[in-house]
């Protein structure tokens, strides 16, 4: 019936990490591994998704994530359309759902959506009959980022089980933090969140994490340090007093890193603000920084997600493709 490869989880949508099983996550990571080799070979293209249409619908500016999804879909042979919202009718007052219905009528197989409002991707997924991948919604989730982070850690450390991970910086406004908190804990890692109290969401400890307000205790003995981008518009005023104060107390440098495990890995979802949340020396430290591996693994993870969602002969609503 289907040409599923063994062990590939079948999902209708990928809206978030919350609620995924450890088996589904492992399945996606295993599948991603197989694409890393493909991506490193000269002939990078397969025809698994040949004839399928993937629409990148980005309501928020993004270069990295959109490019990564585009490369992933093209390497699987899909036709990719990038919807540039800046020039679309969304700016003319068309609602999110009207846009969704319009695109849906063009019969895509998958839509990758990024939106500035939490929950917007869930809402859109209820109104279309193709697969929807959350490319980041507001402050809610960014599931492919968490998957690519997990793949990066797993390739370096073999497993996520039992690792101690510190997620540092602007936790409050970060969808990357939320998806990672879910995924790391589902896979058996322990998670600390480290940052100023003004950037810590209420009752975050009820998500099972340890809360630290300083880097000295927060980074002590950790295996992984995940830095988050601090949005520049939040750096002045009531969240933190200034960039220099923030960097002094919460920016990652070699000094603060001393309390972490000697082989602790440094990660960042990008784009980095050098000298704000991370010191260039640390970011470029080839022994410890895996920031570029994260980008490479991102393409493989997105290929795996596309295969899991639309690689079979049936689409999300069960219609024969």
């Amino acid at each position: 019936m289907t040409k599923n490869r063994k062990g590939v989880p079948r999902l209708p949508h990928l809206l978030g990490i919350e609620g995924l099983s450890p088996e589904a996550i492992s399945g996606l990571l295993d599948l991603s591994e197989s694409y890393i080799d493909q991506n490193r070979s000269i002939d990078k293209r397969r025809d698994l998704l040949s004839g399928r249409t993937v629409i990148n619908l980005f309501f928020e500016n993004s270069t990295r994530t959109r490019t990564s999804f585009e490369v992933a879909a093209k390497r699987l042979g899909a036709d990719v359309i990038n919807m540039d919202v800046a020039t679309s009718s969304v700016r003319k007052g068309e609602t999110l759902l009207d846009t969704a219905m319009t695109l849906n009528a063009m019969r895509p197989d998958a839509i990758v959506v990024r939106h500035s409002e939490s929950g917007a991707v869930n809402l859109l997924s209820q109104k279309v009959n193709c697969s929807v991948i959350n490319g980041g919604d507001g402050q809610h989730e960014h599931p492919t980022q968490a998957l690519l982070d997990a793949l990066t850690i797993r390739r370096r450390r073999g497993s996520l089980e039992g690792l101690l991970v510190a997620i540092c910086g602007d936790i409050m406004h970060s969808r990357v933090a939320r998806s990672n908190i879910h995924l790391l804990q589902i896979m058996g890692a322990r998670v600390r969140v480290v940052g100023p109290p003004t950037l810590m969401p209420t009752e975050i400890e009820r998500m099972g994490v340890e809360v630290h307000y300083n880097m000295r205790t927060g980074l002590a003995d950790v295996d992984i340090v995940m830095m988050l981008r601090l949005q520049t518009e939040r750096m002045q005023g009531t969240f933190v007093p200034s960039i220099s104060e923030y960097f002094h107390f919460f920016g990652l440098d070699h000094e603060k890193l001393k309390v972490a495990k000697p082989d602790a890995l440094i990660m960042h979802p990008g784009p980095m603000n050098r000298g704000v949340e991370i010191d260039s020396e640390v970011a470029d430290d080839l022994d410890r920084s895996v920031i570029h591996e994260q980008v490479e693994n991102g393409v493989a993870v997105r290929m795996a997600c596309l295969e899991a969602l639309i690689g079979g002969r049936r689409n999300a609503i069960g219609a024969v493709a």
């Binding site: 929950g119 507001g138 402050q139 989730e141 009752e203 998500m207």
Partner: peptide
């Protein structure tokens, strides 16, 4: 405010 808002990112 609370756990639900934090989970939903609102």
């Amino acid at each position: 405010s609370g756990e639900m808002a934090t989970r939903l990112g609102l």
